[in-house]
Amino acid sequence: MDAIASKSISSINLSIYRYDPDSGKKPFMQDLSIDIPEGQDIMVLDLLNMAKEQDPSISFRRSCGEGVCGSDGMNINGKNGLGCITPLSEALKGNKIVLRPLPGLPVIKDLIVDMKQFVDQYKKIKPYLINDEEKPEREIKQTVEEREKLDGLYECIMCGCCSTACPSFWWNPDKFLGPAALLQAHRFISDSRDTATEERLDQLEDAFSVFKCHGIMNCVSVCPKGLNPTKAINEIKKKLVKRAL
């Protein structure tokens, strides 16, 4: 709030990536000048909504507006993040902001990317509890400590900010699972109720799925939920190595 007020910025220069394959035109950057309310630190998504009032053809995904649904992952002044919880005070460079689609995935239109590769990798890790034992009538018991192992893993909102910030994922989006899917893999490996740990590790044991992570931690620096996929990936690597010894 203060950052904007002190600079007394009332108009923002927004540069936004535009592309509609049906138009026959190449992608281009559209420049818009947008007046913002004084004294309020609005979010990037608010700015986009104002831009859409000027030009209704600008396309982007959005839903909850509070950083929980994961719709509005985008590249904001060079860094991936969620439009709805990134305040302008944090994102602005001078009075300029550049918005592009998440890098590395095919663009459907404007800021909307095709998430298929991302979701396919997620599906590969069997993202559901596997438990072949007979179920109790009540809950399967889990201690507070066992449950704590899922903290930092289950909160992923599948926005795609991490995997699309990862050079290994850019290079091998079909063979390297990417940070988001691997975080989920570790979520199920860590769950005391899951009985398929060995099968899950078997599936990850190749040169690409996990080991293409070189630990550069872009995923950690962009995760809007403050999660740490690199740590989860290292835990998986350790388990795989330990098993092989």
């Binding site: 509890l129 809950e139 449950r147």
Partner: peptide, 19 residues
């Protein structure tokens, strides 16, 4: 609720390991 727990919903737990 128990069906959802069996599906994997990560409920918080009590000291006795219950939901």
């Amino acid at each position: 609720v128990f069906e959802l727990e069996h599906m994997g919903l990560p409920f918080s737990r009590t000291e006795e390991g219950k939901i």
